[in-house]
């Protein structure tokens, strides 16, 4: 378990203030925040690169606040991977083991195992200059895993990867977590948070303003900042399958047509709340998804109104106050939700 008690750090005009956080063993904790929110700084505090002005950090109930970096067992994967350019991939992975004076045979064995696990066995003799960003991240990950770290710290590990590599890397991280590896992952990408986290924290201007499961945090944002991810509030887990020549997403309560470009299998779908149209009557239009729903809440914000409608699962729809008024929408009204298949983003798991 990793615990931060009242961590504060002043950095010029920026302050990390009163950070209180507990991450249980086996959790995949994603800290979500914009650049400059202090998320990387916080990771630096846990790794030991940055000494907090106040507060205590414990790893497995041991106070490590004053412990030097090299004596903490908190393995970090840097944003730009930091694979040593003057060593081969194999030597990079062996580096932490050489420090601990492992026998040559044992090192070779561990290196081979980790290369296998991270899918880089074919790269062992290469030098970093000849690797792609994705391969570098895997090397960095393999290298840090040799330590069997108490916690794995990831600083935007997917940011430099293209879409295809991302899903492979996500799978790898998820598997590691399933095998019991505690992970703290910082990112500005809510998609990453939703797809990986068992728990999410939102950090803004050096303060953690909300923690909870991804569903809780995205559906009930507790601040304007978290609400900016509100476009993401219509997200649903399920499977995509082929049905009568169309691709259809479904789960226990929902069945919608998605664009032909979506891949089959387990996935999340995301529908921006601006992309949903509300009507009183069902009518034919270019939107191929029409759902029957009942209004649960109508909530006015200063520049828009949000209607929450129950169509088996809650849907969030953004409207102008004017539309709500002219349509005379009220709680418990039966309505129809229309959205185009192309308005649905599919995120393959």
């Amino acid at each position: 378990m990793i615990a931060l008690h009242n961590i504060s750090k002043k950095f010029g005009s920026f302050t990390l203030a009163d950070i209180d956080l507990q991450i249980e063993a086996g959790e995949y904790f994603v800290l979500l925040g914009n650049s400059g929110s202090g998320k990387t700084l916080l990771l630096g505090c846990i790794a030991g690169f940055i000494q907090p002005d106040m507060g205590i950090i414990t790893i497995n109930s041991e106070d490590v606040t004053r412990k030097p970096v090299q004596k903490r067992n908190a393995g970090m994967v840097f944003h730009d991977s930091a694979v040593f350019p003057h060593m081969s991939v194999a030597r990079n992975i062996a580096y932490p083991l050489e420090i601990r004076r492992y026998k040559k045979k044992e090192i070779a064995l561990r290196v081979a195992q980790l290369a296998e696990l991270t899918g880089i066995s074919h790269l062992l003799q290469r030098y970093p200059a000849k690797l792609s960003a994705g391969e570098m991240q895997r090397v960095a990950l393999a290298r840090v895993l040799t330590l069997k770290p108490d916690v794995l710290l990831l600083d935007e590990p997917l940011a430099s990867l293209d879409v295809q590599l991302r899903s492979g890397m996500r799978q790898l991280l998820r598997n590691l977590n399933k095998q019991g590896q505690t992970i703290i992952h910082v990112t500005h990408d809510y998609e990453e948070a939703a797809l990986l986290a068992t728990r999410v924290g939102i950090i803004e201007q050096g303060r953690i303003i909300q923690t909870g499961s991804p569903g809780e945090v995205f559906r009930n944002p507790r601040s304007a900042f978290a609400a900016r991810f509100a476009g993401f509030r219509n997200f649903y887990e399920g499977q995509i399958a082929e049905l009568n020549g169309k691709k259809v997403f479904s789960n226990a309560t929902l069945k919608v047509v998605v664009a032909d470009g979506c891949s089959l299998g387990n996935c999340f779908i995301v529908i921006r709340s601006e992309d949903i149209i509300i009507s009183r009557e069902a009518f034919a239009s270019s939107a191929c998804n029409v759902l029957n729903a009942k209004i649960q809440f109508i909530e006015s914000h200063h520049d828009y109104t949000e209607v929450t409608a129950d169509a088996g699962l809650p849907f969030y729809v953004k409207l102008t106050a004017h539309s709500v008024k002219s349509m005379n929408l009220n709680v418990d009204d039966n309505i129809f939700l229309h959205f185009k298949a192309s308005a649905i983003n599919c995120i393959t798991v």
Binding site: V69, K71, A82, V144
Partner: peptide
């Protein structure tokens, strides 16, 4: 880049080892 020295420390290398195996060769 300082990140290489930081990464080596993070992997458990002492400051002396970081100097001889990372900073000096690079």
């Amino acid at each position: 880049p300082e990140k290489y020295e930081k990464a080596a420390l993070n992997l458990g290398a002492s400051p002396a080892r970081v100097f001889f195996t990372i900073s000096l060769p690079l």
